[in-house]
Design a protein around this nucleic acid. Structure first.
Lengths: 157, 157
DNA sequence: ATTATCTCGGACTAAATAGATCCGCAATGT
DNA sequence: ACATTGCGGATCTATTTAGTCCGAGATAAT
């Protein structure tokens, strides 16, 4: 059970975008340079966030990425599931209905208890991530961070 | 973020072993037949549970696997982490200290907030799984299950 | 309006990991 | 002694992840 390494990249990228002035953008190349990441691969992952609707992209000179919504309305869960997918890590394939020990379909009207417990754990994980927004992250940074980020990321103070 | 398919196998195998009479064993071949699973691969995964200390194995004829401890002292978390490893799905590589936007080491004395939040979610997941034991699982089964499992799995009533 | 340039966007390739199998060895009970 | 079972290693394949490349489209200066 492993999240892609790009998860960290995108969380930090999104947090950085949240520190820009509203309407301002940063290009994939700028973000890649800012964190020293492979630019092409980062660009690909940023597209996933666009498709998921948490980022908006504008093409052409002076274009780039920005948050699609206020930072307070973007949760860590939305970011993580945008890059990794929203499916549960545990997939019940109903092996209780297979093989020599197969249960009659009649006893399988209620979902498998093991699958239930695993799903419950996943819900706890999602709930925890959904409780934090990008605005919370930015608020926890030192007050000097946003202006420095703007300067070093886009070159604008 | 995906758990191996063998996770489901081992959870069900452990639950089945929990229904045997104390001291009784089931072989890898019996378990594979019981759920219609690839025997060789299942055997390999069962070894992981032995190494993790939740199962005990005896070789030789009439040998096989049994629970290493009472079912009430084996949690779903222990089983899942035995097969998948106990490492967190999110790995912080401190990219905040790399590239053009690198923070001075002085500002990185406190751990990255994003890593903290991800770790917190993982703790919530682990806590949820640790709250359920194999005994809880067996108790939720219909009362007729244990004797049927014993019959169909090992051939003993 | 045109052109030069900068951006995203999707197609494509390579490396890593999971899934699965097989064989020989050690141990145990009949 | 022999059949049965777990254990560990070597091997092979397939899927996923990581990473690169080039083209379509939009913008801004000329």
């Amino acid at each position: 059970m492993k999240l892609p390494v790009s998860t960290e990249w995108l969380l930090h990228c999104a947090a950085s975008l949240a520190q820009l002035k509203s309407g301002d953008t940063a290009s994939a190349a700028q973000l890649a340079q800012y964190f020293d990441l492979p630019a092409a691969y980062l660009a690909k992952q940023l597209q996933a966030l666009v498709k998921a609707g948490v980022l908006a992209a504008t093409t052409g000179p002076r274009g780039g990425f920005r948050l699609a919504r206020p930072a307070s309305e973007i949760t860590l869960l939305q970011l993580v599931e945008a890059v990794d997918g929203a499916s549960s890590p545990y997939e019940c394939r109903e092996i209780r209905q297979q093989g020599r020990g197969a249960l009659p379909a009649e006893e399988c009207r209620t979902p498998c208890i093991l699958a239930e417990k695993m799903a419950e754990a996943h819900r706890a994980w999602r709930r925890s991530l959904a409780a934090t927004s990008l605005a919370d992250i930015v608020a926890a940074l030192p007050p000097s961070a946003p202006s420095r980020t703007r300067l070093r990321l886009t070159g604008a103070p």
